[in-house]
Structures are given as C-alpha cells and as structure tokens.
C-alpha cells in the first residue's frame, strides 16, 4: 500500500510537470502561440485524479492500523488473497440463462413472438441461478 501511494504521488507530480511543459511549449515554441486548453485541462485533471488516489490510499493505509501483506517482505502471495465472495464450482443455470437470452434477442431480430418464449426461460433460470445455494441441501 505504501508503494502504491508513493507511485500515485509521483504520477500526479509527473502529470502536473508535463502540464506545465506542455502549456509553455504551446505558448512560446509552437505554431499556436496560445494556451492549448484541451491538453492543458486534461493533464491538470489527470494530475488531480492521481493525487486523489494517492490521498485515498494514504488514508486507507493510515486507518488499517499496521502493515498489510503487500508491505511485508516475508509475506506469502495467499496472505493478500481476500475472501472474494461465494462462487459456484459448477452450475447448469448460466447455460440455460444464456439460452433464454439468446432466444430473447433472436426474437428482437427475427420475430417478437420468440422473445415471449425467451422471457420465461430467462426468468426461471435467473431465479434458479440466484437461489441455487439457498435451496435443497444448501438451505440454511
């Protein structure tokens, strides 16, 4: 997190420096002889965005109360591997929902009556997929 924070501070500084160079260059050393606003504003905003991220990461680092795995030289890869959510190891439902959606969009192209066949297939498979781990053996 510390390295990420510093990288974004450096990146923001680089954008502002490039912005200054670009503005001076367009003022004095190009055929424009005036400020080229699109590039100037875009690079200034890029710098500000990078500073936003650096500030946010800095605050997050300060609030976590200690070193995270990414800052420890002796950490393992899976120390920084958080619980991402619950994922099904395998399921038939995505296949059925894809079939239903294919019918729905085929109906838009070919004839609307096919869409009306697709809609209940999508409805059933959406609910089937969503509640797959909430029924039967998995009910809790």
């Amino acid at each position: 997190m510390r390295a990420n924070t510093n990288l974004f501070w450096i990146l923001g500084g680089f954008f502002l420096l490039a912005d200054a160079v670009y503005t001076i260059w367009s003022l004095f050393f190009s055929e424009f002889d005036r400020v080229e606003w699109v590039g100037t504003v875009a690079m200034a905003l890029s710098g500000i965005f990078a500073f936003f991220l650096a500030f946010y990461l800095g605050r997050t680092y300060a609030a976590q109360g200690g070193e995270g795995p990414s800052d420890l030289p002796d950490a393992n890869i899976d120390d920084g591997d958080p619980e991402m959510g619950t994922f099904s190891p395998w399921s038939w439902w995505p296949l059925i929902i894809a079939f239903g959606l294919a019918l729905m969009f085929l109906g838009v192209a070919v004839g609307v009556w096919i869409t009306f066949i697709g809609v209940p297939v999508v409805a059933v498979s959406l609910i089937g997929w969503y509640y797959e781990y909430y029924r039967g053996n998995f009910a809790r």
């Binding site: 969503y130 029924r135 809790r140």
Partner: peptide, 18 residues
C-alpha cells in the same frame, strides 16, 4: 431478489450482506 435471499435464510450472514 436480495429480499428473497434475506427471507430464504434463518440467519443473516455476510454472504447476504455482500
């Protein structure tokens, strides 16, 4: 669908919160 999940379980856990 979210409300359905909340009603489907006896104990509200982190999975439903997510």
């Amino acid at each position: 669908l979210v409300l359905g999940r909340v009603f489907a379980v006896k104990n509200f856990t982190h999975r439903e919160a997510t």
